[in-house]
């Protein structure tokens, strides 16, 4: 019970911090939307002929969502480091609150921020005619998935922040997702890939997260894709939270 209360109070604190720093939140939205616009603008018109994708704008919405999650988690890593450098992290550790809950407050806030930005990006997509094939129930599933993925990815950056205490390392941590995005089906389906890239995309969990989100937006209900997306997100979560716990134990030993 104390853990839940601690996560709740520290999540509110991190969200308040985000609201009071609108420039950073604007960056988290605008940069992914910029790449979204450029990608759709440059190859959207040939996507139908080249890849057999009619709704390429909808196809790109999940890429913008994952890029935004990456940007959010990088800023959260920096926030953790700021707390460490200012001594506020010690102040929190000196309360009787469970230490893992102290770290998870910020991670949960990242999940909430990712949900908010996902809703915004979906809204932008709808304005540009992406549609949303699974309707409101599908949107709720997408938001739940975004919450999970946002938290999972934030966990990696929290681990980097706790282990290194370095702003540079935390900033670099936010970039870790980009190679994985490029090695997935971010810009085209697997069947047009070279063999080596197809293998990498197949073993890349980001591919399954993207496919699950796409199925909700442009294909309709596909239980298989959703299950694989949930499994990939769960795998990400287990890996990132394990690293976070280890980094926290290292910092407090």
């Amino acid at each position: 019970m104390q853990s839940i209360a601690t996560v709740y109070f520290l999540t509110l604190r991190s969200l308040r911090e985000a609201v009071r720093n609108p420039a950073q939140e604007a960056g988290n939205v605008l940069i992914p939307l910029f790449f979204f616009a450029v990608t759709v603008g440059s190859i959207g018109s040939i996507a139908a002929d080249a890849f057999g994708i009619d709704n390429f704008t909808g196809f790109q919405v999940p890429v913008a969502i994952l890029a935004a999650a990456s940007s959010i988690s990088a800023s959260a890593g920096l926030g953790t480091i700021t707390d460490i450098q200012r001594g506020y992290f010690d102040k929190l550790l000196l309360t009787p609150a469970p230490r893992s809950a102290i770290v998870f407050g910020r991670i949960a806030a990242d999940g909430v921020r990712t949900v908010a930005i996902t809703a915004f990006i979906v809204g932008v997509g709808l304005i540009f005619g992406t549609g949303f094939d699974t309707g409101v129930p599908g949107l709720l599933v997408l938001l739940v998935g975004s919450f999970g993925f946002g938290m999972a990815y934030s966990g990696f950056n929290a681990a980097i922040a706790l282990r290194t205490g370095s702003p540079q390392a935390a900033a670099a941590g936010g970039l870790l997702l980009f190679p994985l995005i490029f090695l997935s089906t971010a810009f085209a389906p697997k069947d047009v890939f070279a063999d080596w890239l197809e293998v990498l995309a197949t073993i890349n969990p980001i591919t399954y997260v993207l496919e699950a989100q796409r199925s909700l937006i442009i294909e309709g209900w596909n239980g298989f894709d959703i299950l694989w997306g949930a499994t990939a997100t769960l795998g990400f979560s287990v890996a990132s939270f394990t690293l976070t716990f280890l980094a926290l134990r290292w910092r407090t030993s």
Binding site: N21, Y88, F89, D90, K91
Partner: peptide
């Protein structure tokens, strides 16, 4: 049982 004020005032400038 304890209260602690460390050498660097551990505060959060945003709050």
């Amino acid at each position: 049982s304890i209260g602690v004020a460390l050498q660097e005032a551990g505060l959060d400038d945003v709050q």
